[in-house]
């Protein structure tokens, strides 16, 4: 059952998708092919899939830690933005300085930037017991406005005719491409490393164990002497750091400068990815790729079949509903094995 449920979800999505396409007077078989197969039937397509999936996977893994411990950081979008600004600020400050230390420096700045932004909800939560869902969400709006201010003001490209975007980063501040002829950059490898690291910590390390215990059995955790505050900090630092790194990867990889819209909602989409991946790093990798595939499929459907962009949204929504609904099968399975119902939250 555990094995079949995602399959079932996909089959259901494809079937209802076909009904939808038939209603829209579109050849269903061709539409499904255009959505799911055509985008990844070339090397370029696969590279693009990874480019799109990289920030989603990274953030989702970071968030998974918190979600397992019932720490609800939904402000990854803001943490991504501040991470991008911290690393981008460094790149602009050292504009035209050719040094191999710049990229690592930007990575560190990105991670620290994301962590700083996540530290605010962590501090408010541990010190004043303030709900982190709300503070992290509010801070996302603040971060986006900070970005807007910088890009319309002080960080505007001096030769940019007063348009709101920064200079293009010089070579030393851009992530190298790792697959010649495509846009696949070093960030893709970093995401894979994060999957491995995330898996090790979650499955083998004491921190991962503590996080899981706190999430599933808070009472037991306090008997065992795990400090709740420590876990809150840790969760938000991991989530914020991963989101900040994702921001750095976006601006120094595919974008190459600071622009008013750095992320088309990756911080929010990654929350869905984390749950689709069952809060498991390997699951996040697969779910992130699946999610990315629907975006690529959406482009493709517009180009090849003149389907409006809105179809992608509906289709994504359906796919998510079915995948989430099929959780019930997995849950029943788990119940039989362990006689205990894990709470989703």
């Amino acid at each position: 059952m555990l094995y079949w449920s995602p399959m079932l979800a996909v089959v259901l999505t494809i079937l209802s998708g076909m009904v939808m396409f038939a209603l829209l007077d579109v050849n269903p078989a061709k539409a499904i092919h255009t959505f799911f197969v055509a985008p990844v039937s070339s090397l370029d397509g696969i590279a693009e899939l990874f480019v799109k999936a990289t920030p989603l996977v990274l953030i989702a893994i970071g968030l998974s830690f918190g979600f397992q411990a019932n720490v609800w950081n939904i402000g990854a979008e803001g943490q991504l933005t501040i991470g991008a600004l911290a690393s981008g600020g460094l790149a602009l400050a050292f504009y035209d300085v050719d040094t191999p230390f710049l990229l690592p420096g930007m990575m560190i700045a990105g991670v620290l930037g994301g962590m700083t932004w996540a530290a605010i909800p962590a501090f408010l939560k541990t010190r004043f017991n303030t709900n982190e869902i709300l503070t992290s969400l509010m801070l996302t709006y603040v971060a986006l406005l900070v970005l807007s201010y910088l890009v319309h003001g002080p960080w505007k490209d001096p030769e940019g005719m007063n348009f709101p975007e920064s200079r293009l980063f010089h070579e030393a501040a851009q992530l190298p491409v790792i697959l010649e002829g495509t846009r696949l950059h070093l960030g893709g490898l970093l995401a894979l490393l994060a999957v491995a690291a995330g898996w090790v910590v979650m499955a083998r390390h004491i921190i991962g164990f503590q996080i899981k215990v706190i999430g599933m059995a808070p009472m037991a955790a306090s008997f065992a002497g795990f400090k709740k505050a420590r876990i809150v900090w840790l969760s938000l630092m991991i989530g914020g750091g991963a989101a900040g790194l994702a921001g750095m990867i976006e601006i120094s990889g595919p974008i190459g400068q600071i622009i008013p819209v750095i992320s088309p909602g990756y911080g929010f989409t990654a929350i869905i990815v984390a749950f689709l991946g069952r809060l498991n790093p390997v699951g996040c990798l697969l779910a992130g790729c699946l999610m990315a595939l629907t975006y690529l499929g959406g482009d493709n459907a517009q180009i090849e079949m003149n389907l409006p962009n809105a179809v992608t949204g509906v289709f994504q929504g359906m796919l998510l509903f079915f995948l989430l609904a099929c959780d019930v099968l997995i849950r029943y399975r788990l119940r039989v094995v362990s006689k205990k119902v894990p709470e989703a939250a």
């Binding site: 494809i14 092919h33 790729c289 699946l290």
Partner: peptide, 19 residues
Amino acid sequence: YLTSLTGGILAAAMLVASG
């Protein structure tokens, strides 16, 4: 099961594929 997540999509889509 996780691997089946993407494998499933590809397999199912191939069935109906007729580009």
